[in-house]
Amino acid sequence: MSISVFSVLSAMDLVLNVADYYVLTPYVYPESWLEDGTLRQIISLLVLTNLGAAVLYLGLGAISYYFVFDHKLMKHPHFLENQVQREIKYAMTSLPIISIPTVALFFAEVRGYSKLYDNVSDSPLGWSGLFLSMISFLFFTDMCIYWIHRFLHHKSIYKLFHKAHHIWKIPTPFASHAFHPLDGFMQGVPYHIYPFFFPLHKVLYLALYIFVNIWTISIHDGDYRVPGALTSVVNGAAHHTDHHLFFEYNYGQYFTLWDRLGGSYRHPSPLMGKGPHDVIRKLEAEGKLGSDGKANGNVRNGVTCKEE
Protein backbone atom coordinates (compact mmCIF):
# COMPACT_ATOMS: atom_id res chain seq x y z
CA MET A 1 0.00 0.00 0.00
CA SER A 2 1.12 3.40 -0.92
CA ILE A 3 4.02 5.02 0.88
CA SER A 4 3.57 8.76 1.24
CA VAL A 5 5.64 9.99 4.11
CA PHE A 6 7.81 12.17 1.87
CA SER A 7 4.86 13.85 0.27
CA VAL A 8 3.96 15.97 3.27
CA LEU A 9 6.91 18.10 2.24
CA SER A 10 5.82 18.32 -1.38
CA ALA A 11 5.15 22.05 -1.51
CA MET A 12 8.82 22.17 -0.78
CA ASP A 13 9.46 25.78 -1.55
CA LEU A 14 7.29 26.72 1.46
CA VAL A 15 9.20 24.37 3.73
CA LEU A 16 12.54 25.37 2.24
CA ASN A 17 11.83 29.08 2.70
CA VAL A 18 10.98 28.59 6.37
CA ALA A 19 14.07 26.44 6.94
CA ASP A 20 16.29 28.97 5.16
CA TYR A 21 14.91 31.92 7.11
CA TYR A 22 15.08 30.43 10.59
CA VAL A 23 17.93 27.90 10.45
CA LEU A 24 19.90 27.29 7.27
CA THR A 25 20.88 30.82 6.26
CA PRO A 26 21.81 32.20 9.70
CA TYR A 27 23.37 29.04 11.17
CA VAL A 28 24.33 26.47 8.54
CA TYR A 29 25.46 27.78 5.15
CA PRO A 30 28.19 30.38 4.49
CA GLU A 31 27.11 33.66 2.89
CA SER A 32 28.62 32.62 -0.43
CA TRP A 33 26.04 29.82 -0.75
CA LEU A 34 23.01 31.62 -2.19
CA GLU A 35 19.58 30.38 -1.16
CA ASP A 36 18.57 29.66 -4.76
CA GLY A 37 21.81 27.84 -5.60
CA THR A 38 21.30 24.40 -7.13
CA LEU A 39 23.70 22.47 -4.88
CA ARG A 40 22.46 24.16 -1.73
CA GLN A 41 18.83 23.45 -2.60
CA ILE A 42 19.50 19.79 -3.35
CA ILE A 43 21.43 19.28 -0.10
CA SER A 44 18.76 21.12 1.89
CA LEU A 45 15.99 19.08 0.27
CA LEU A 46 17.77 15.83 1.10
CA VAL A 47 18.18 16.81 4.75
CA LEU A 48 14.65 18.15 5.16
CA THR A 49 13.11 15.20 3.35
CA ASN A 50 14.85 12.60 5.51
CA LEU A 51 14.21 14.51 8.71
CA GLY A 52 10.55 15.01 7.84
CA ALA A 53 10.16 11.37 6.83
CA ALA A 54 11.57 10.11 10.12
CA VAL A 55 9.48 12.47 12.24
CA LEU A 56 6.25 11.70 10.41
CA TYR A 57 6.73 7.96 10.24
CA LEU A 58 7.89 7.48 13.82
CA GLY A 59 5.59 10.12 15.28
CA LEU A 60 2.34 9.15 13.57
CA GLY A 61 3.24 5.47 13.77
CA ALA A 62 3.85 5.67 17.52
CA ILE A 63 0.58 7.53 18.16
CA SER A 64 -1.33 4.87 16.24
CA TYR A 65 0.59 1.98 17.79
CA TYR A 66 0.04 3.08 21.38
CA PHE A 67 -3.47 4.53 21.13
CA VAL A 68 -5.23 2.70 18.26
CA PHE A 69 -3.54 -0.62 17.48
CA ASP A 70 -4.99 -3.57 19.38
CA HIS A 71 -1.99 -5.28 20.96
CA LYS A 72 -3.96 -8.52 21.25
CA LEU A 73 -3.19 -8.98 17.55
CA MET A 74 0.38 -9.77 18.58
CA LYS A 75 -0.95 -13.13 19.80
CA HIS A 76 -1.90 -14.11 16.25
CA PRO A 77 0.07 -17.09 14.90
CA HIS A 78 1.27 -15.06 11.92
CA PHE A 79 2.59 -12.18 14.00
CA LEU A 80 6.38 -12.47 13.75
CA GLU A 81 8.91 -12.47 16.55
CA ASN A 82 10.26 -8.95 17.14
CA GLN A 83 8.01 -7.79 14.32
CA VAL A 84 7.62 -4.17 15.43
CA GLN A 85 11.38 -3.68 15.67
CA ARG A 86 11.83 -5.33 12.28
CA GLU A 87 9.18 -3.12 10.68
CA ILE A 88 10.82 0.03 12.03
CA LYS A 89 14.31 -1.09 11.01
CA TYR A 90 13.18 -1.95 7.48
CA ALA A 91 11.36 1.36 7.04
CA MET A 92 14.18 3.47 8.44
CA THR A 93 16.74 1.84 6.13
CA SER A 94 14.49 2.21 3.08
CA LEU A 95 13.37 5.82 3.56
CA PRO A 96 16.80 7.43 2.94
CA ILE A 97 17.11 5.51 -0.34
CA ILE A 98 13.60 6.48 -1.43
CA SER A 99 14.47 10.11 -0.70
CA ILE A 100 17.03 10.28 -3.52
CA PRO A 101 14.64 10.09 -6.52
CA THR A 102 11.96 11.85 -4.47
CA VAL A 103 14.21 14.89 -4.03
CA ALA A 104 14.55 15.14 -7.80
CA LEU A 105 10.79 15.67 -8.00
CA PHE A 106 10.88 18.13 -5.09
CA PHE A 107 13.63 20.07 -6.86
CA ALA A 108 11.44 20.36 -9.97
CA GLU A 109 8.63 21.71 -7.78
CA VAL A 110 10.91 24.23 -6.12
CA ARG A 111 12.09 25.38 -9.54
CA GLY A 112 8.50 26.11 -10.56
CA TYR A 113 7.76 23.30 -13.02
CA SER A 114 4.57 22.16 -11.28
CA LYS A 115 1.08 23.70 -11.31
CA LEU A 116 1.12 24.46 -7.59
CA TYR A 117 -0.15 27.93 -6.73
CA ASP A 118 -0.03 30.17 -3.65
CA ASN A 119 -3.34 32.05 -3.58
CA VAL A 120 -6.97 31.02 -4.09
CA SER A 121 -7.29 33.90 -6.55
CA ASP A 122 -4.81 32.07 -8.80
CA SER A 123 -7.36 29.29 -9.34
CA PRO A 124 -9.78 29.86 -12.24
CA LEU A 125 -12.54 28.26 -10.14
CA GLY A 126 -11.74 30.06 -6.89
CA TRP A 127 -12.78 28.32 -3.68
CA SER A 128 -14.79 25.69 -5.54
CA GLY A 129 -11.55 24.79 -7.29
CA LEU A 130 -10.03 23.84 -3.95
CA PHE A 131 -12.83 21.36 -3.27
CA LEU A 132 -12.73 19.92 -6.78
CA SER A 133 -8.94 19.54 -6.70
CA MET A 134 -9.17 17.73 -3.36
CA ILE A 135 -11.67 15.23 -4.81
CA SER A 136 -9.74 14.78 -8.05
CA PHE A 137 -6.49 14.30 -6.13
CA LEU A 138 -8.00 11.43 -4.12
CA PHE A 139 -9.55 9.72 -7.14
CA PHE A 140 -6.51 10.24 -9.38
CA THR A 141 -4.04 8.86 -6.85
CA ASP A 142 -6.37 6.02 -5.88
CA MET A 143 -6.60 4.93 -9.52
CA CYS A 144 -2.86 5.17 -10.12
CA ILE A 145 -1.93 3.37 -6.92
CA TYR A 146 -4.35 0.55 -7.65
CA TRP A 147 -2.66 -0.26 -10.95
CA ILE A 148 0.88 0.28 -9.66
CA HIS A 149 0.13 -1.90 -6.64
CA ARG A 150 -1.40 -4.59 -8.80
CA PHE A 151 1.57 -4.44 -11.18
CA LEU A 152 3.90 -4.97 -8.21
CA HIS A 153 2.03 -8.19 -7.50
CA HIS A 154 2.81 -9.59 -10.95
CA LYS A 155 4.58 -12.91 -10.49
CA SER A 156 7.60 -11.83 -12.54
CA ILE A 157 8.54 -8.98 -10.17
CA TYR A 158 6.64 -9.58 -6.92
CA LYS A 159 9.46 -11.42 -5.14
CA LEU A 160 11.98 -8.77 -6.18
CA PHE A 161 10.25 -5.79 -4.60
CA HIS A 162 6.79 -6.03 -3.06
CA LYS A 163 7.06 -9.34 -1.20
CA ALA A 164 9.12 -7.64 1.51
CA HIS A 165 6.01 -5.68 2.54
CA HIS A 166 3.93 -8.87 2.71
CA ILE A 167 6.19 -10.41 5.32
CA TRP A 168 3.91 -8.61 7.75
CA LYS A 169 0.77 -10.78 7.57
CA ILE A 170 -0.65 -9.10 10.66
CA PRO A 171 0.73 -5.57 10.22
CA THR A 172 1.16 -2.90 12.85
CA PRO A 173 1.11 0.85 12.08
CA PHE A 174 4.90 0.66 11.66
CA ALA A 175 4.44 -1.70 8.69
CA SER A 176 2.83 1.19 6.80
CA HIS A 177 6.14 2.39 5.37
CA ALA A 178 8.18 -0.82 5.62
CA PHE A 179 8.69 -1.23 1.87
CA HIS A 180 11.50 -2.11 -0.49
CA PRO A 181 12.84 1.32 -1.64
CA LEU A 182 11.78 0.92 -5.27
CA ASP A 183 8.38 -0.34 -4.20
CA GLY A 184 7.92 2.62 -1.87
CA PHE A 185 8.97 5.16 -4.48
CA MET A 186 6.74 3.70 -7.20
CA GLN A 187 3.67 3.79 -4.97
CA GLY A 188 4.48 7.36 -3.98
CA VAL A 189 4.84 8.63 -7.55
CA PRO A 190 1.12 9.42 -8.08
CA TYR A 191 1.20 11.93 -5.21
CA HIS A 192 4.20 13.69 -6.70
CA ILE A 193 3.05 13.84 -10.33
CA TYR A 194 -0.49 15.09 -9.65
CA PRO A 195 0.54 18.79 -9.33
CA PHE A 196 2.52 18.55 -12.56
CA PHE A 197 -0.73 17.79 -14.40
CA PHE A 198 -3.38 19.60 -12.35
CA PRO A 199 -3.49 22.95 -10.48
CA LEU A 200 -3.37 22.57 -6.70
CA HIS A 201 -3.04 25.04 -3.84
CA LYS A 202 0.20 24.54 -1.93
CA VAL A 203 -1.37 24.58 1.51
CA LEU A 204 -4.04 22.11 0.40
CA TYR A 205 -1.23 19.94 -0.99
CA LEU A 206 0.40 19.83 2.43
CA ALA A 207 -2.94 19.10 4.12
CA LEU A 208 -3.72 16.29 1.69
CA TYR A 209 -0.39 14.65 2.35
CA ILE A 210 -0.81 14.78 6.07
CA PHE A 211 -4.11 13.04 5.45
CA VAL A 212 -2.41 10.52 3.14
CA ASN A 213 0.14 9.63 5.81
CA ILE A 214 -2.56 9.22 8.45
CA TRP A 215 -4.59 7.06 6.06
CA THR A 216 -1.63 4.88 5.12
CA ILE A 217 -0.95 4.20 8.77
CA SER A 218 -4.64 3.71 9.58
CA ILE A 219 -5.12 0.86 7.11
CA HIS A 220 -2.32 -0.99 8.91
CA ASP A 221 -3.52 -0.28 12.45
CA GLY A 222 -5.80 -3.29 13.01
CA ASP A 223 -8.84 -1.15 13.78
CA TYR A 224 -11.45 -2.75 11.55
CA ARG A 225 -14.37 -0.48 12.42
CA VAL A 226 -16.01 1.10 9.37
CA PRO A 227 -19.47 2.71 9.31
CA GLY A 228 -21.81 0.13 7.82
CA ALA A 229 -22.88 2.31 4.92
CA LEU A 230 -19.24 2.82 3.87
CA THR A 231 -18.03 -0.77 4.12
CA SER A 232 -18.52 -1.43 0.42
CA VAL A 233 -17.05 1.92 -0.63
CA VAL A 234 -14.09 2.71 1.65
CA ASN A 235 -10.94 0.59 1.67
CA GLY A 236 -10.21 0.47 5.38
CA ALA A 237 -7.98 -1.58 7.68
CA ALA A 238 -10.30 -4.59 7.46
CA HIS A 239 -9.97 -4.64 3.66
CA HIS A 240 -6.23 -4.13 3.74
CA THR A 241 -5.73 -6.84 6.35
CA ASP A 242 -7.21 -9.31 3.87
CA HIS A 243 -4.78 -7.98 1.28
CA HIS A 244 -1.87 -8.88 3.55
CA LEU A 245 -3.34 -12.26 4.41
CA PHE A 246 -4.64 -13.36 1.02
CA PHE A 247 -2.35 -11.48 -1.35
CA GLU A 248 -4.48 -10.92 -4.46
CA TYR A 249 -7.38 -8.84 -3.18
CA ASN A 250 -8.09 -5.23 -2.17
CA TYR A 251 -5.23 -3.37 -3.85
CA GLY A 252 -6.92 0.02 -3.50
CA GLN A 253 -5.78 2.93 -1.36
CA TYR A 254 -8.91 4.81 -0.25
CA PHE A 255 -11.81 3.29 -2.15
CA THR A 256 -13.00 -0.11 -3.34
CA LEU A 257 -13.96 1.25 -6.79
CA TRP A 258 -11.00 -0.07 -8.76
CA ASP A 259 -10.97 -3.40 -6.95
CA ARG A 260 -14.58 -3.86 -8.02
CA LEU A 261 -13.85 -2.81 -11.61
CA GLY A 262 -10.71 -4.97 -11.69
CA GLY A 263 -12.33 -8.04 -10.15
CA SER A 264 -10.06 -8.01 -7.10
CA TYR A 265 -12.53 -6.98 -4.40
CA ARG A 266 -12.93 -9.23 -1.35
CA HIS A 267 -15.40 -8.50 1.41
CA PRO A 268 -13.26 -8.24 4.57
CA SER A 269 -13.05 -11.40 6.64
CA PRO A 270 -12.81 -9.37 9.90
CA LEU A 271 -16.31 -8.06 9.15
CA MET A 272 -17.63 -11.61 8.70
CA GLY A 273 -16.38 -13.00 11.99
CA LYS A 274 -13.40 -14.68 10.33
CA GLY A 275 -10.65 -12.13 10.94
CA PRO A 276 -7.48 -12.15 13.05
CA HIS A 277 -9.30 -11.30 16.28
CA ASP A 278 -11.67 -14.20 15.72
CA VAL A 279 -8.73 -16.55 15.16
CA ILE A 280 -7.15 -15.44 18.42
CA ARG A 281 -10.38 -15.88 20.37
CA LYS A 282 -10.82 -19.38 18.93
CA LEU A 283 -7.25 -20.38 19.85
CA GLU A 284 -7.69 -19.01 23.36
CA ALA A 285 -10.92 -20.98 23.79
CA GLU A 286 -9.19 -24.14 22.58
CA GLY A 287 -6.19 -23.55 24.86
CA LYS A 288 -3.78 -23.47 21.94
CA LEU A 289 -1.91 -20.35 23.00
CA GLY A 290 1.22 -20.82 25.09
CA SER A 291 1.96 -19.27 28.45
CA ASP A 292 3.44 -16.26 26.65
CA GLY A 293 0.12 -15.75 24.86
CA LYS A 294 1.50 -16.80 21.49
CA ALA A 295 0.76 -19.79 19.31
CA ASN A 296 3.36 -22.38 18.45
CA GLY A 297 4.50 -23.18 14.93
CA ASN A 298 2.06 -26.04 14.41
CA VAL A 299 -0.89 -23.78 15.18
CA ARG A 300 0.52 -21.11 12.85
CA ASN A 301 0.59 -23.55 9.95
CA GLY A 302 -3.05 -24.39 10.55
CA VAL A 303 -4.35 -20.82 10.27
CA THR A 304 -5.77 -19.75 6.92
CA CYS A 305 -3.36 -17.53 5.04
CA LYS A 306 -2.19 -17.58 1.46
CA GLU A 307 1.54 -18.03 1.02
CA GLU A 308 2.77 -16.38 -2.17
Rank of each mutant, 00 (worst) to 15 (best):
S156W: 08
E87K: 07
I63Q: 04
F197V: 08
H154R: 14
D70M: 05
M186W: 00
H166I: 06
P270W: 12
R150D: 03
L39Y: 10
H201P: 00
P270S: 08
F69K: 12
T231R: 13
F185V: 07
G59R: 05
Y194T: 05
A178M: 03
F6K: 00
R86D: 15
A53W: 01
I145L: 05
A238V: 03
A207S: 11
A175M: 02
F198A: 07
S264C: 07
P77K: 10
E35H: 08
F151H: 05
M12R: 05
T304A: 13
N235R: 06
L80D: 15
I97Q: 08
L200K: 02
F185L: 07
L80Y: 12
W258M: 14
G287V: 03
K288Y: 12
K306C: 15
H149M: 05
T25L: 12
F106M: 05
L39Q: 10
S114Y: 08
L160H: 14
T25N: 12
G263M: 10
P30S: 06
G287C: 09
A238C: 05
E307P: 02
F140R: 04
P276V: 11
S218R: 13
K163L: 11
E87D: 15
H177Q: 06
C305E: 09
Y249R: 11
H243T: 05
P26D: 11
L230K: 10
E81M: 12
V8L: 07
S136P: 00
L289G: 06
L132E: 06
I100P: 02
G52R: 04
H180N: 08
L230Y: 14
F69Q: 07
G273W: 07
M143K: 03
S218Q: 13
Y65W: 09
F255A: 01
Y27P: 04
H153L: 12
H78Y: 13
S94M: 10
P270A: 11
L73T: 01
A91V: 09
S269H: 07
F196G: 00
A53H: 03
E109N: 14
M74E: 15
D36R: 08
Y66A: 02
